[in-house]
């Protein structure tokens, strides 16, 4: 894919400004610093070499030491005054500062004073340099679960040690597992632990607020090929995976719109009266049952019929339990009971 002209210009100027202070630098190091390939750095150097002030006589041009280039080292000998690094634009500063502020507030950073300190100092230097309040964007992520749980996970990640956790699934089943932690994703309203689970003998993702207890063991983590390849994104498709699961169609009143926005659905159809209809795969019946009961006042219809009956049956069972309770229906409270 062709690189955009403005992105390349930034790098060209960046290379000159950097080399002016850095002395001779190997091509490979430059490539790493500017996130590109050595071949691209060669092209950049070739372009810089013929650029300069109008006239474009040899003395007008940016210049490099030719002998060094042959050895794979870039040695700038004439910068044509282009020695100052560029200041950050407002949008660039906003993007960085908002991300750092959000990171600073996560449980995983708060749990560790050393981490808090480094995020804090990076943020401080950045706002000093940009001089921007950068308050146009304000992001807060999930608090990230119980403090002790988060602290144990963070510590195990750094020390590369196995964790013993007690976990409750979205179907409300509690289990004990030993896991090798790989990564702690904090995304939006939840934090997730990506790990190798010995109980499942497979990679698993755990929602941190559902980890009831976490204990760092002294067993070092093992290699699990293919687990936790660096990727900041959570694979929600995989979390809710299952192309072969049955489809359900649910019609909601407008007030339940968040469901369509936050749950991975196959399709959403807006209806003329403001209602909307979603189609989704039923990969986790327990979760869907519980969610539909929660949203019931805004649910207009559920198909197929067995799913609707399942939800209604669970609700009726609960109503029976309430009916059997001896709490007076006129609203007495414990304060005046007895």
């Amino acid at each position: 894919m062709a690189e955009r002209a403005d992105d390349r210009l930034l790098r060209l100027l960046g290379i000159v400004a950097y080399l002016d202070g850095a002395g001779p630098v190997p091509v490979a190091d430059l490539a790493k610093r500017f996130g590109t390939t050595p071949a691209q750095i060669q092209k950049d150097v070739d372009a810089l070499w013929v650029s300069g002030t109008p006239g474009y006589w040899p003395d007008d041009l940016i210049d490099f030491d030719a002998a060094s280039i042959d050895r794979g080292v870039v040695h700038l000998t004439e910068a044509r005054g282009m020695t100052r690094p560029l200041r950050l634009g407002t949008r660039e500063a906003v993007a960085l500062v908002a991300a750092l502020r959000a990171m600073k507030a996560t449980g995983a950073v708060q749990a560790d004073p050393a981490r808090s300190a480094v995020v804090e100092s990076a943020l401080g230097k950045l706002t000093d340099a940009t001089g921007e309040a950068a308050s146009a964007v304000d992001v807060r992520l999930a608090p990230g679960g119980d403090r002790q749980v988060v602290a144990a996970i963070s510590s195990a990640l750094v020390a590369h040690r196995r964790l013993r956790i007690r976990y409750v699934t979205s179907s409300d089943v509690v289990s004990e597992r030993e896991v090798d932690p790989v990564r702690l994703h904090t995304q939006d309203e939840y934090a997730y632990l990506a790990a190798w689970c010995y109980r499942a003998a497979a990679p698993r993702t755990f929602r941190v607020d559902r980890i009831l207890e976490a204990v760092e063991t002294d067993v070092p983590v093992q290699e699990h090929p293919g687990v936790g390849e660096p990727s900041a994104e959570i694979d929600f498709a995989a979390l809710f995976a299952g192309g072969s699961s049955p489809l359900a169609t649910i019609r909601f009143a407008p007030r339940a719109r968040w469901f369509a926005e936050e749950v991975p659905v196959e399709s959403v159809r807006n209806l003329p009266d403001g209602d909307f209809e979603v189609t989704l795969r039923v990969t986790n019946p327990g979760w869907l049952r519980s969610t539909l009961i929660q949203l019931a006042p805004y649910v207009r219809s559920v198909a197929p019929r067995p799913l609707a009956d399942d939800v209604a049956g669970a609700a009726r069972e609960a109503l029976d339990v309430y009916g059997a309770s001896s709490v007076p229906r006129d609203g007495a409270t414990s304060a005046n009971h007895h």
Partner: peptide, 21 residues
């Protein structure tokens, strides 16, 4: 790119190992 052009060493990921917000 701008900050990397301004010098400094290579980034170290140790401080926030394993975190992915």
């Amino acid at each position: 790119v701008k900050l990397r052009a301004a010098g400094a060493g290579d980034p170290s990921a140790d401080a926030l190992a394993g975190l992915a917000p």
